[in-house]
């Protein structure tokens, strides 16, 4: 199911890619990687907790994030894999597991060490840096498996790799689900 779902999602994105033309997308991807190459070293290994409104609850924290009022459909639904913040996620969506986009489900432990993606908010057409933090200490949530890879790089570039279990620095490495907090506006280098 995980891979079939990924295949369907990727197929949809292929359609969009063909329609919009490959050149523009490729340039955007390339510049994203360039940006991430410089930003990754800054974020990797550093706790992004001060930027994460994890204690405020879902609605309050989302209100403090980017403007999502112009979003429609799946891109606006945090329980849908096509939600705009999930462009580089690999795992179970905490929004389906008792958590929110910025808060881990009860009884799990938030990992402060993370990987990042750069996702375009279709509502305002701006790129945002998204921190994907794993929630740890319980077995797999098993719901809303989501596998997207925009800007993902291999495991030898850890801060930009979504195949790593990021339950690091936690009491337990057991992986439960993943949250997606916006930590900044992306800038091009």
């Amino acid at each position: 199911m995980r891979r079939e779902r990924a295949a369907k999602a990727l197929s949809r994105r292929l359609d969009a890619w063909v329609e919009s033309g490959s050149r523009g997308i490729a340039q955007r991807v390339s510049s994203r990687r360039g940006f991430l190459a410089s930003l990754g070293g800054v974020l990797f290994g550093a706790a992004t907790a001060p930027l994460l409104p994890v204690a405020r609850g879902a609605d309050a924290s989302r209100a403090s994030g980017p403007d999502e009022s112009k979003l429609h459909g799946a891109a606006a639904d945090p329980k849908n894999c096509d939600y705009w913040r999930y462009c580089a996620i690999d795992g179970f969506l905490c929004t389906c597991c008792g958590g929110t986009t910025t808060a881990c489900p009860p009884g799990t432990e938030l990992s402060r060490i993370t990987w990042i993606g750069t996702c375009r908010n279709p509502g305002d057409q701006r790129d945002y840096v998204v921190s994907y933090n794993d929630c740890c200490g319980k077995s797999s949530c098993g719901r809303c498996d989501c596998y997207r890879n925009e800007g993902d790089l291999p495991m030898y570039v850890p801060p930009k790799n979504n195949d790593t279990i990021w339950c690091q620095g936690t009491h337990s490495n057991a992986y439960h689900c993943t949250i997606s907090a916006v930590v900044g506006v992306a800038v091009q280098d």
Partner: peptide, 11 residues
């Protein structure tokens, strides 16, 4: 497979 630029891990 046939896919877009970010689909290297697609089935």
């Amino acid at each position: 497979h046939r896919g877009g630029p970010e689909t290297r891990k697609a089935p």
